[in-house]
Write a protein that binds this DNA or RNA. Structure first.
Lengths: 196, 196
DNA sequence: ATCAAAAACTAATAAGCGTTAGTTTTGTAT
DNA sequence: ATACAAAACTAACGCTTATTAGTTTTTGAT
């Protein structure tokens, strides 16, 4: 009889991906060896290949998991029955949440996507461009409805996405700022910068 | 007689560092081989060692050149006889300028500093922490003088530095936005977010 | 207890890495 | 022209890498 995947909602493959994400984040994708990942999992390197296909597959898993979550959430925000400003706030807060809850994965997806092999690289970049376009469209809508200042939508997208990404830096000051202060101050800083 | 270094203000070592910076930026430090750098310079890999000591020395050159420029300029801004808000604007505009003028170097310093060997890694991080502290102090001063809103200074620093760093993303949209629009919209977005 | 599948192990491979050694070419000052 | 140093070259080293092959151990259902 075929064995059924462990009832637990985390297979060994998932464990490997999670450990890999942490190592990729701290040491970088190229600087992380399969032997290191294996050691973190508690196994010898070749054993990993009973569960995964290649090192690059691990990077793909991390990058596309993150990309899909962002895409899904943006769709939800777009379909909200709120004014545009509230939609944008929802998106920003989701970015902050992701940065805190899935730090390793988001960090790696942001920095190491360049090492994806084709055709995944192209796929990833297309998804990202589409995300930025939809976010810019949201801002443009806000400008038309006079909820927002007349700034270039792409500059606003760029400023927002980057500022949130900067939570990477924040990890160093963790102890001194509460998460709530951080989130609210950042959201306000970003929104007040474009509010009319 | 000892030969004097070429009168030109760019030695061969400088050429190597510049080419390396470009490759580091596009492919990442670890993913860039000495053979690739050599090819970009138009030479075989071992020949590089007539001019430089090691691959890591190239990374050091890039990282500390950038760090020193930022530190120097911050000192200048601090000593300006302007109000605090203007000082901060000066700093932001310098960051944007650096991002445009020395893109490869700044990008590499931002992303690949982790691969600096000790004691350079510690040195670099100390310089960076000090920079962030001084910038936060500037913002705190602005708050005390009631030029700025009462936000957490570190959150503001984090938001500013990251947003500017996000010009990395902008490279893709180069054609559609003028540099002036970009700079002004971003500065306004950031400053209006904290102005009282 | 048995047996098959899953997953671990050891050993090894081919390729690529930064770097060194040793030699030849190039450039310049006399 | 000669001589010397700078800088190029080829060849090769020692090491690490991801991955494969082949074998043994572990696991779980009957």
């Amino acid at each position: 009889m075929a064995k059924i995947k462990p009832a637990k909602n985390s297979s060994k493959k998932d464990v490997i991906i999670t450990k890999a994400a942490t190592l990729f984040r701290t040491r970088g994708f190229n600087a992380t060896s399969m032997r290191e990942i294996a050691a973190a999992v508690g196994v010898e390197a070749p054993s990993l290949y009973n569960h995964i296909g290649s090192k690059s597959e691990l990077l793909q898993a991390v990058c596309f998991k993150v990309a899909d979550e962002f895409t899904t959430q943006l769709t939800a925000a777009e379909n909200n029955k709120q004014d545009t400003l509230a939609k944008i706030e929802t998106v920003i807060r989701f970015h902050i949440k992701m940065m805190l809850d899935e730090f390793d994965e988001v960090y790696v997806a942001n920095r190491d996507w360049k090492h994806l092999p084709e055709p995944f690289l192209n796929n990833f970049l297309q998804q990202r461009r589409s995300y930025e376009k939809r976010l810019a469209a949201l801002i443009e809508e806000g400008i038309k409805k006079k909820e927002l200042k007349n700034i270039n939508p792409y500059v606003a997208v760029l400023t927002m996405l980057s500022a949130v990404r900067g939570l990477e830096l924040w990890q160093r000051h963790k102890k001194n700022i509460s998460i709530q202060t951080l989130e609210d101050d950042m959201v306000n800083h970003l929104l007040n910068g474009m509010k009319k």
